[in-house]
C-alpha cells in the first residue's frame, strides 16, 4: 500500500494519508487533481472496481468531502481518495467517463447534497426525491429533518413528557434548594 501511495505522491500532491487497515488506506488530494488521481489509480494501479462515491458534509468547516472508494480486485486492496471541495460553490469535475455507474452516484450527490458535476449526464434530474420536492438538498447537515417533519406533519395529540428528576422535585421538594 505504501508503495502505491508513494507512486501516487510522485504524480499528485497528496495532502494527507491514513493507513486505516492493512487493506484500506485513505489519501487526500486537492480538488483539481481529484478525478485525475482516480483515473490514475484505475488505469495504472489496478483499482478497477469503484466501490462507492459519496460525500461527507463538514458543515462547520464549510467544506464537502468527496470519497471515491476504489478497490483493486487482484491485490484485494482498497483506497479511499478524498477530495475537499468548497461548500458554497459545491462543484466537482465529473468522473462518469471512467465508470458508467458514476453517473448514478453523481446524480444522487447532485440531488441529495447539491453538489454539481458539470458534464455528467443526469444532473438536475430527480433520482430519489419526489418531483414536488422544493426544499434544500436534504442530506446537507443544515437541513433539519426533525424540524421539517414537525413543521410538515402533525404530532399525535395527548403525548406528554415528564422528566423523572423534575417530577421528583415537584413532588418531593417543591421549595427547591
Amino acid at each position: 500500500m505504501k508503495e502505491i501511495v508513494n507512486r501516487l505522491k510522485e504524480k499528485f500532491p497528496v495532502t494527507a494519508e491514513i493507513y486505516q487497515r492493512d487493506d484500506l488506506t485513505f489519501v487526500t488530494v486537492e480538488k483539481k487533481y481529484g478525478v485525475d488521481a482516480v483515473a490514475y489509480l484505475k488505469e495504472y494501479e489496478g483499482f478497477t472496481h469503484l466501490v462507492l462515491l459519496t460525500a461527507v458534509d463538514w458543515l462547520e468547516e464549510g467544506e464537502f468531502q468527496l470519497t471515491y472508494l476504489l478497490n483493486n480486485p487482484k491485490a484485494k486492496h482498497d483506497i479511499g481518495l478524498r477530495v475537499r471541495i468548497d461548500r458554497e460553490t459545491a462543484e466537482m469535475q465529473t468522473a462518469h467517463h471512467l465508470w458508467p455507474a458514476v453517473t448514478t452516484y453523481e446524480q444522487e450527490l447532485n440531488e441529495m447534497f447539491g453538489i454539481s458535476f458539470p458534464g455528467s449526464p443526469r444532473q438536475g434530474h430527480r433520482f430519489i426525491l419526489d418531483e414536488a420536492w422544493q426544499g434544500p438538498p436534504p442530506y446537507r447537515r443544515d437541513f433539519d429533518t426533525k424540524k421539517y417533519s414537525e413543521e410538515t406533519y402533525f404530532p399525535r395529540p395527548g403525548r406528554s413528557k415528564i422528566d423523572p428528576s423534575e417530577h421528583m422535585k415537584k413532588k418531593l421538594y417543591p421549595e427547591g434548594m
Binding site: R159, S160, I162, S165, H167, M168, K171, L172
Partner: peptide, 17 residues
C-alpha cells in the same frame, strides 16, 4: 413517554413515573 400512574408515588429511589 414516562407518565404518572395511579398507585405509584414519587419517593426515594423511585420517580413514581
Amino acid at each position: 413517554d414516562l407518565v404518572e400512574v395511579a398507585g405509584y408515588e414519587a419517593k426515594d429511589g423511585d420517580s413514581g413515573l
